[in-house]
């Protein structure tokens, strides 16, 4: 019963999370020690109904964590295309980059998550953006041998 709001978000426990919010509404966008919000936890763990619930309550999908991680990058890295689509409908920065110059598209390509790659491309993700190490999405797909990723990008 003493799980944090972030843990409840990751577990998709909407009713328990709602109890926390009823006591302290500021928890909605509270950031943990690394700067992750409940929405980021839900996005990272693929909890789509929780993502929708938090957004409906007014959670800010544009918040960045301490090393500039975003909910969109977390969902893309996890391969959760439905959540990627929901976040893209909420006006997030599609090309936000973080501590190693990763963008949502780079994470989707790295994880070989084709549906996420295509959702991001459909919404105009910058295909030329290179990671700090100089890899563009196409170069990354080739280096990792992700054929489908290459096809989507090309």
């Amino acid at each position: 019963d003493n799980l944090s709001i972030h843990q409840l978000a990751a577990h998709g426990e909407i009713s328990q999370l709602e109890v926390h919010l009823s006591k302290d509404s500021s928890l909605l966008n509270s950031q943990d020690e690394r700067g992750f919000t409940p929405l980021m936890w839900a996005a990272a763990f693929g909890e789509i109904m929780m993502v929708e619930f938090l957004l409906q309550k007014g959670a800010d999908p544009r918040t960045l964590a301490r090393e500039r991680e975003s909910a969109l990058s977390l969902a893309s890295a996890g391969g959760f295309a439905d959540i990627v689509n929901i976040l893209l409908q909420h006006g997030v920065d599609i090309d936000s980059y973080d501590w190693n110059g990763g963008t949502p598209l780079l994470y989707a390509v790295r994880g070989n998550h084709i549906k996420c790659v295509e959702a991001l491309l459909r919404c105009g993700a910058d295909i030329t953006f290179e990671a700090d190490s100089g890899y563009s999405p196409v170069a990354l797909a080739v280096a990792l041998g992700h054929k489908k990723g290459q096809e989507s990008l090309l």
């Binding site: 992750f36 190693n100 990763g102 780079l106 994470y107 190490s133 100089g134 280096a143 990792l144």
Partner: peptide
């Protein structure tokens, strides 16, 4: 029901293990 604690989300290093371009 007891929920197990998840570890904090993290993003993988994009190019770990790949040759420098």
């Amino acid at each position: 029901s007891q929920l197990s604690l998840y570890t904090s989300p993290s993003l993988p290093n994009i190019t770990l293990g790949l040759p420098a371009t």
